[in-house]
Amino acid sequence: MSTPASHTAPNTEPKTSSTTPTNAAPNAPANAPANPGGSAKMILTLGTVGLISSILLVMTYNWTLPYIEANQLVYLEASLKEVLPEATSRTEWRLVGEDMVPDDGSFTIEPRLFAGFRDDGSLQGVAIEAQGQGYADVIKIIYAYAPDCACIIGMKVLESRETPGLGDKIGNDENFKSNFDELDVRWNDERNATEGPLELIKQGTNLSAWQIDGISGATISSKAITDILNSSNEVVLKAIHARLDQLRAPTNE
């Protein structure tokens, strides 16, 4: 009914749009080269393309999701292996406020903690996710804390946009990495403060156990790592020691 009207008179647009657009519109304007526009057709075109696009995107999302999750798991396990090399099993926790709770999958943005256990079931250490501002953009790291020696036993940069060749050495410079082989963050007897916050010093000067040997040419990035560790330790170490007994159990209850 609307089809003959729409290609005889150009002013029938309201009519076209008031009828069911799914049937009428795709055919009608194709017969009307004199009037190729018409807002109904434009809206319909964009709507149709949008609909097809969203279907395609949902399909792709569902199809790639398992692969993406598998990749993320592989990446996480490789990172954990690097900071906690002796651990063969783990329990997962989240830092909520100033407390740590077992990760039941209901958290999204809270920092993750992983307690890593050796073959014999003893706790090697706790891997902690942390982040902070670097020279360029946010640096994300994971580091391992061993409650037995009260020290940091490993650190890995997960994500950074530091300057290639200078700042990005925080992730690949062996000298800098060796700072974190056994970095003292010992607590006092009350276990409520670090003996001294970690300190960054110039490369080549004598190291104390709580000092980090910086990278020359990348002071800001080295300082960023130090600051990330200090601010994270302030909260996390308290939480870890408050729940140490629970942490030592190889399963989340």
Partner: peptide, 10 residues
């Protein structure tokens, strides 16, 4: 974007 994520996260 999804495909690259699925193939290689790095």
């Amino acid at each position: 974007d999804y495909a690259i994520k699925a193939v290689s996260l790095s």
